[in-house]
């Protein structure tokens, strides 16, 4: 059962005592250890942590790409631990959008078609129009017929963001989205994600090891050794104040 927070709103993502342990070489690696986390619609959360802190595992568990070894996970109020493979695929189609560090665009599709892919998969009505609309919103309306190899890194990542947004799903998970970009482009991407969070009411979780990025978040969750060591609200800094 979903638990309403003190302000009465129901969390979109609700992790309760979630652990993810791996058995490697006769020992146990605790990638996540009894993590509790709730994220609401319209929140821009940055998960911060050093390499090996468990932040990517956390993102994978929330994205239903990995399953917890203990605890429970509710997405949109629905318990998904123990869900079937088919249910997990459906959940990803209708609840979650992904943005990856290395973009992972489909090289055989144009920018518009890559974005349309998100809308197609989520079975949105008129996916072509939805894709064109989102592509305009990320400022790439004029690059619609171009293939990924004809776009710059920043443009490719904006297309990837547009693909995640075109699905129209309430959660967007971004794994090091600025990792391969220069500073200026990275800032543009963060601005974009920030806008999306507040205009569409989407919950955006960004995983990064970069503290400067964390400054733009509404909330910063810090991980260390698989556990949350800090979870604080944050007053987002202006993009112009960021220093790489």
């Amino acid at each position: 059962m979903p638990r309403p927070d003190r302000d009465g709103s129901e969390p979109l993502i609700d992790l309760r005592g979630v652990s993810r342990h791996y058995e490697i070489g006769g020992g146990t690696v605790k990638a996540l250890d009894e993590v509790d986390l709730r994220v609401h619609p319209g929140e821009f959360v940055v998960i911060l942590g050093a390499s090996g802190s468990g932040k990517t595992t956390l993102l994978n568990v929330i994205g239903a790409l990995d399953t917890p070894t203990a605890g429970s996970l509710l997405i949109g109020g629905r318990e998904i631990t123990g869900a079937s493979r088919r249910e997990l695929f459906a959940l990803r189609r209708h609840e979650i959008g992904f943005i990856f560090q290395s973009f992972n665009l489909f090289p055989g599709l144009t920018a518009l078609e890559n974005v349309q892919f998100g809308a197609d998969v989520a079975a949105r009505p008129d996916p072509r129009a939805a894709a064109r609309d989102v592509l305009e919103r990320v400022g790439l309306g004029d690059r619609a017929p171009h293939f990924p190899h004809e776009l710059s890194g920043g443009e490719q990542q904006r297309v990837a963001i547009a693909r995640a947004l075109a699905a129209g799903n309430p959660i967007v998970l971004a794994d090091e989205p600025t990792g391969e970009l220069d500073f200026a482009t990275g800032v543009q991407i963060l601005e974009l994600l920030h806008d999306v969070t507040h205009t569409a009411g989407t919950a955006v979780l960004v995983v990064t090891h970069n503290r400067e990025i964390a400054r733009v978040a509404d909330r910063i969750v810090e991980l260390s050794s698989g556990g949350i060591v800090a979870d604080e609200p944050n007053v987002p800094a202006a993009m112009s104040d960021l220093r790489w």
Binding site: F103, P107, G108, E113, F117, P127, F147, P148, H149
Partner: peptide, 27 residues
């Protein structure tokens, strides 16, 4: 991404053809 993003081969030729179906059908 050198290999994956290095080019679309002759795919741009097909992009100009009005093939039916969505992105998955075109792939």
């Amino acid at each position: 991404g050198f290999r994956t993003a290095r080019g679309g081969g002759l795919a741009p030729l097909l992009a100009r053809l009005p093939l039916p179906g969505g992105s998955l059908a075109q792939m």
